[in-house]
Design a binder for these strands. Structure first.
Lengths: 207, 207
DNA sequence: CGGCCTTTTGACGTCAATCAAAATTTGTGG
DNA sequence: CCACAAATTTTGATTGACGTCAAAAGGCCG
């Protein structure tokens, strides 16, 4: 994608709020590396992560934003960000862009619905397995489709995983411990996960 | 929207499967009246409703469909349906169409994320209140924004509501009974609901 | 009226939440 | 590099909200 002159690049430290659809922040970005989490919060503080964006996803909600989603860097993130105006000009000049945006949003919608099934109908154990599987597929640098194993750093803390899966930290921890006990995964430094046999993990995802 | 010659109109009886994104069914529709439910099912039969489409929503997932969503009529439905080919031709002739499709998909994405919060973080009571509120806003014929009350037929059975909210039929029934006992809603014939004070209902939705 | 399906109600069980505290990791300054 | 503080993760004990199982009540249509 060619960038207009008004774009800028920057790194965001972990946890930094990148943009909130709720208010005046009126920018649009491209995730160059890292993971961005989209969260929604209830008035009493309960939180739910409603999406994760990996490179090279677009980031932002064009055409008005009433949806009160907050985007935060989950890991070190490199963004290429530009004002809404630039996006809209680019879309005029290059209608293909709007098409690609539609395709990405359709993918996001598919993913959101995938997670609705997990949130509504899967057990804690199945949620964790599904989550690890999803991360493995998105993050493992050598993620060929025919790989038997995978190894990756979790982009989220236990608390964030809980917010993603509609669980508590304690339940997340227990389920990960259980998977480790059953040798489905190995965990180093709490963040690095190795899956020797992805099929065995997939078998626990409940699909 | 102008319809190409190859389009057709038909009514679907309740419960009829309209299209499945999984396979060869390759049509695209417009909901003219009624409610269509989008469901996903796990291999052991657990089901989750991942979306409800009200008139005048589009229905269908253009540009390949790997997402195994099934669309079914929840009520009597009038559709205007046409083959994918027609849609793609129409999009070429009228680029505005693709733009409107994008806007609708963005709305659907917002809604999906709204429900992710409910599924992951709300209590059974809050889920029911949120659901009734959503239906009231979409269905009540006289739903002016400044109405104090609302009255409508539920487009879903208790079992379907359960599948939408990630609950069991029994829990749905108990929560509705509870709301009735507290005079937040009145229910006639199990399907018709009257809300005298929408604010009181909204206060229980937990947002 | 009678069978069938949906909804409600009741008794009980269980999975995940809550509460509490220990263990481990991470970060900071000397 | 180590010592200490803070944050994160794990583990344990207990509770509670919702699920499960069972049966009664209510609607719908022949």
């Amino acid at each position: 994608m060619t960038l207009s002159r008004s774009t800028k690049r920057h790194k965001a430290e972990t946890g930094k709020e990148l943009m909130s659809d709720v208010g005046s922040v009126d920018r649009f970005s491209n995730v160059l590396s890292g993971v961005v989490k989209l969260t929604k919060t209830l008035s009493d503080g309960r939180q739910q992560i409603v999406g994760l964006q990996f490179a090279p996803d677009f980031l932002g909600r064009p055409f008005q934003a009433e949806s009160t989603v907050t985007a935060e860097a989950a890991t070190e993130v490199e963004l290429c960000s530009f004002p809404r105006q630039a996006l809209e000009r680019m879309m005029k000049e290059q209608p293909d862009l709007e098409h690609r945006l539609l395709e990405q949003k359709l993918r996001e919608l598919d993913q959101a619905r995938e997670w609705m099934v997990a949130l509504g109908r899967k057990t804690a154990a199945e949620k964790i397995a599904s989550f690890l599987l999803m991360i493995a597929r998105n993050i493992d640098p050598a993620a060929g489709p025919e790989r038997r194993g995978a190894s990756f750093d979790l982009p989220l803390s236990r608390a964030e995983i809980a917010d993603f899966l509609g669980l508590t930290v304690e339940t997340v921890s227990r389920q990960i411990t259980r998977l480790r006990g059953e040798k489905v995964i190995r965990v180093e430094n709490n963040r690095h996960v190795t899956v020797d046999d992805i099929q065995r993990l997939a078998a626990r995802a409940g699909d």
